[in-house]
Amino acid sequence: MSQSGNTADVNQATAPEEHSLKDDLKDLQFSEVYDLNQRTIEDTYADGPLIQDVAPLSLLRSEYEANDNHVFVKEIDWLINNGYHDFRRVKGDGDCFYRAIGFAFFTRLIQNPDKDLAVVTTLSTLMATANLLEETGIEKLVYEDFYTEMEALIRWVVVPREGKSILTIDGLLEYFRDPEGSNVVVVYLRLVTASYIKAHVEDFENFLFHPETRELMSVPDYCNRVMGLGKEADHVEIMALCDAFRWNVEVAYLGGHSKDAINFVKIPDAPYPGFDPVFLLYRPGHYDILLK
């Protein structure tokens, strides 16, 4: 299930300021916006591929316009006017965050003007993540197949693989559309996310809320949840994963929280050098890839 986020999720991620009575009134309206949004997401994702072709954001705009959802229409207009013209839909199967960020990151790697250096840097970061897994008690038997495949995928950006020429965006799309391919990436990213949380307990322990009940969870329980497929990601997972991989991500949060401009959340606060950020489009309970 991917569409199970709630208003509290979004508030927590986007509006750190005090919650006032006025906001509560706004939330009432927001829950209606939310319901409409869920229906739109469900209607448009049913049988599509895991990652869809690039589509203009104006298409998304027209879907919300047809549903009379003016909050989203206004926000999408802002994105279009600020240079974000396209997006890729990612299947809402509970793994959308990991699949979206994985695909977006590999896209950046392929597009990097100094690919050789970027690949070497990424391989050494990958190696560090394997150490992290090891240190947090994940057995080699468990992670090594996923690690080996991640390594091969990264190398493929600069060297041919098994008779196939070096990885292009189209090749990447084909790889990610095959569940056997992109689930390997999803699983590895999930393992690293869980291990990073375990290794930085003091940073995260007060924020490990169950996505449905909103109850505080223990670190092992939370991390077990992160490691299973189909379990949605929250702000905690995004921060942990980006820190572990030294990725820069900017998330555009839609859903009626910003008056004028879209609230982009940059993770981390100070970007890591060497890589352009990837952009994600968040609508309550769901992530897609946003493109400039």
Binding site: I138, E139, L141, V142, N224, M227, G228, L229
Partner: peptide, 9 residues
Amino acid sequence: GNEWSPVLS
């Protein structure tokens, strides 16, 4: 079922 993860063997 829903608590399966690849960490298990």
